[in-house]
Design a protein around this nucleic acid. Structure first.
Length: 285
DNA sequence: CATTACCTGCAA
DNA sequence: TTGCAGGTAATG
């Protein structure tokens, strides 16, 4: 479930069930997910601590305790939920934090790429410090974005996946945002026009907010133990729609690969545009 | 900058 | 059997 809208949805679901609860134990079946820490050290660190706050930064989940913070990243297949006592287990549950009310905070992660680590207060890890704008809270100015893009020759789509610009955009929403902003995903960031940058800055929070209102995206029939699932997949304009028709212009949606990841866009309305000055460098039609 | 590694599960 | 999947860090 892991782009910003999905992570925020998870945080909102677990927050009321965690806040004020004391952790009385912890178990981990894949020690690698805690690296460079160990199951023993994390278990000892969290034991008897009370959850004071649950937050999100980019795609990271921060579970604040009295004396430190648990940092969880779901990566590709991670799911985080609070299970009531007696409810059935699942084969892919990898980490368990037992709470004083009998419930358990569970990390379910089939590919085991998700990460958990504990850090004591005051020292925010580098991963968090490197993150860029929080899309739902701050909107960068066009000149600021232009200054950054000016120096970047990378295509705009893979650049949107760079968490040091906007934090929380992933592979699905990058395509959806660029469709919304009517920008060709292969266009180099340095070649974006002032107008395209303006539309991009506008589209980023609007698409992510809309997805959040839908409860995020649920792909591949993920069964949520709470019976909750997002519906944004019904709102997709381009993602996974290759061969289908563009809902804006009737053009064909195509799939390409950029930086080893799928990108979807409309070949007609997201075509590389001409400048007033003529064809742009690197144009691919 | 691009490529690879880290993993498992499912569909083509 | 291969390729692909909502991500990031570590390599050349």
């Amino acid at each position: 479930m892991p782009e910003l809208p999905e992570v925020e949805t998870v945080v909102r679901l677990i927050r009321p069930r965690l806040t004020g609860r004391k952790m009385i134990g912890a178990r981990f079946s894949v020690p690698r997910q805690l690296r460079p820490q160990t199951p023993d050290s994390v278990r000892r660190a969290v034991r008897c601590q009370v959850v004071s706050r649950v937050q999100r930064r980019g795609k990271y989940i921060l579970i604040d305790l009295d004396k430190g913070t648990l940092l969880v990243h779901l990566r590709m297949t991670g799911r985080l939920y609070v299970r009531s006592s007696g409810k059935p287990h699942d084969a892919h549950e990898r980490a368990f934090f037992d709470l004083d009310d009998g419930c358990t905070l569970v990390l379910n992660d089939s590919r085991t790429l998700g990460t958990i680590r504990y850090f004591s207060k005051k020292k925010l890890p580098a991963q968090i410090q490197r993150l860029g704008w929080e899309p739902l809270e701050e909107t960068p100015g066009p000149d600021q974005v232009r200054d950054i893009f000016r120096r970047r020759t990378l295509a705009i789509k893979p650049l949107l996946l760079d968490q040091s610009l906007w934090a929380g955009i992933g592979n699905i929403y990058a395509s959806e945002i660029l469709w919304d902003a009517t920008i060709n995903p292969q266009k180099r960031a340095s070649q974006l026009t002032r107008e395209e940058i303006r539309r991009l800055i506008d589209s980023v929070p609007r698409i992510l907010r809309h997805a959040l209102e839908c409860g995020g995206t649920t792909l591949r029939n993920f069964a949520d133990p709470d019976g909750k699932s997002g519906s944004y997949q019904d709102e997709f304009r381009v993602y996974g729609r290759d061969g289908e028709t563009c809902l804006r212009c009737g053009g064909v949606i195509v799939r390409i690969v950029q930086a080893q990841r799928s990108t979807y866009y409309c070949k007609k309305c997201q075509k590389m545009r001409q400048n007033i000055c003529g064809k742009e460098k690197g144009e691919i039609v």
